[in-house]
Design a protein around this nucleic acid. Structure first.
Lengths: 348, 348
DNA sequence: TGCAGGCTTGTAAGCGCTTACATAGACGGA
DNA sequence: TCCGTCTATGTAAGCGCTTACAAGCCTGCA
């Protein structure tokens, strides 16, 4: 029974109070459940609320209680499977705390810093993913509002959650060496993101602590799919090229693999290829792509949870929280064809 | 030079006014650019704003101007590549209008309707994707605030944007018939979403206007990857099984294809398979998956734009806005191996 | 010199909600 | 019967911002 049509004044706490024959304070108390109220009055108020389809204005409440019940999530882009799952985890945790999430994608913004400041004024705290804001800006923000860093180098005064990178890179590299590979190259630009930087670090560490080969410079390309052709061309041009490629992510690994295969290179016989993220395609291509699975949903959830705690008054955690990752061995590294555990097309 | 530390009172328009030696009205006018201000005063104010790192409280402004400069986006889940791109398009358009976007994922909510009502109280309008709220609830919402329906059957009083489905389904089906296929089955549950319902309609229309075969019932399974094995088992059980499968989306098509291949069925020789969405995997598998590409980014952008117009006062569009889709022919339908236009691993 | 009229700035009244405090009954014990 | 106490409700003061309106100042013209 909405009495509010176009032109009618919107229903406020005053309309409800009037209809229920009580004061606005009483309405507020009934709705908040704060303060004692007689069952009689409560019923009247709730009835009026229902009749008018009353929903309190968020902005008025925020102004009064100095709280938004909302968290901000700032990411650079949303492409790839990476973010949808992260976002799911984030949103689901935030929902449990009764928090809304406002999302800002800085990638295409003309003025990211302004966007984030603006965001900060409508939330109780924010999560900053990598490649969104420079560290000093982040730190400044962290002084005024709770901030959690996501998959990015720790900043003093801010919490930090991320997935483990260097260790898995080391394992992956050692695994390739165990397969007899000796000329390993890293593909992707370590400057591009802290994640990749860590992966590159793990890669070089594993390499230099073995007698496999000298550590060559990384093949610096953009992380996106279109770089594959470029990498393949570069690799096939070598006289004594690599026999293994550690790629910064799966998109890069997959497109490189395809381009090499089209060029007549055999994977993994001639060149082994591995990546990061375990995207859906990784288990559909042939050979299956060996990669590293990140707990993305969990990462999102953790970020939301930590931010919520901070908003509730918890102190900044002294240590960054780092989630373990998991090697997924398929056959692009030289392992025998997968036995199909955990692939969805097999009934178990 | 943030003078605000923990414990200090937060900076408000009053602090700025005081520091600049003017009234709060003047500060507001300078910041809004409304009303004439002398260059002298303006400079003082801006200086103070900078010194204090002042950002106006959003809630106070919203309360005063009765506007949030925010849009709500309600989706059922975020899995798959579908939503990340849609979201990118949405966010980028909204950003251009100076709008924030607050996102609610109803999938795991205990009370979606409450969540959406709550959302409605902190935004100027909302976009409702399919499978989020029942129609009557949506319509009720549409009476009180601008609402745009996304990829969902039109609701009177609400705008509606979606991608074309029936037509492409018809084309896809006719294409398979032209390949000589005669026993075509649809895979996926038409009840599951309006999109799929439309696709099924196109499928049956094409079939009944040809002399290919009778229209069999759809193989009703969940849209997710794990259904592939089930479909394959069902299909291989037939004595005179299908020679073509039109799957409701790519995930289903891909997992079914894999499962069939593992069962010794040749694609496309024994059975042709097609899907919808053109996910990344579709161009990496062998044979390449014939599918339908939807303009997701554009769809997101359109939804944001339409909502913005509605918020600005435009009337509800009488007709739903339907974006065209595009057939992507690869070889799972029986076409010869793709010539690799538009695949990223080929330098052009 | 006086005053109309155009600028610039200040004053103050909201916007809708929460909440500290005041107030009015109801009840029980002295 | 009176008063202290407790409970249920109302009153009113904000929260930080915008904006209609008032007020002051300066310019230029009669």
């Amino acid at each position: 029974m909405a009495t509010s049509g176009p032109g009618t004044r919107p229903t406020t706490i005053y309309s409800v109070a009037q209809l229920a024959g009580v004061s606005i304070a009483t309405v507020s108390r009934v709705l908040q459940g704060t303060g004692a109220t007689s069952p009689q009055i409560r019923a009247q108020v709730l009835q009026a609320v229902e009749d008018l389809e009353y929903v309190p204005r968020r902005s008025a409440r925020s102004l009064a209680v100095q709280r938004h019940d909302a968290q901000g999530l700032v990411v650079h882009d949303l492409t790839g499977p990476y973010y949808s799952e992260l976002l799911m985890g984030y949103e689901s945790a935030a929902a449990k705390f009764g928090q809304s999430v406002i999302i800002v994608v800085t990638g295409q913004r003309e003025d990211p810093e302004w966007a984030v400041r603006e965001l900060a004024s409508r939330v109780d705290g924010l999560v900053l993913a990598n490649s969104t804001l420079p560290d000093d800006e982040a730190r400044a923000l962290g002084r005024r509002t709770p901030v959690v860093m996501l998959a990015r180098t720790a900043v003093p005064g801010c919490d930090s959650v991320s997935a483990e990178n260097a260790q898995s890179a080391r394992e992956l590299t050692e695994h390739l060496i165990a397969h007899g590979r000796r000329r390993l190259f890293f593909v992707g630009d370590p400057e591009g993101s802290p994640d990749v930087q860590e992966r590159y670090r793990g890669f070089t560490e594993a390499l230099s602590s073995s007698d496999a080969s000298e550590v060559g410079p990384a093949i610096r390309v953009d992380f996106r799919e279109h770089s594959g052709a470029e990498v393949a061309a570069q690799v096939m041009g070598h006289v004594n090229g690599p026999d293994a490629l550690v790629c910064a992510n799966d998109e890069l690994a997959l497109s490189t693999m395809k381009a090499l295969q089209r060029g007549g290179v055999k994977v993994p016989d001639d060149i082994a290829i591995v990546g990061w993220d375990d995207v859906m395609t990784a288990r559909y291509v042939s050979p299956g792509l060996t990669t590293v699975r990140q707990p993305l949903f969990e990462l999102g959830r953790l970020a939301a949870t930590r931010l919520h705690e901070r908003i509730a008054g918890a102190p900044v955690a002294p240590e960054p929280r780092i989630l373990p990752t998991e090697l997924v061995l398929r056959s692009s590294c030289g392992c025998p064809e997968t036995d199909d555990r955990d692939v969805p097309w097999v009934t178990s």
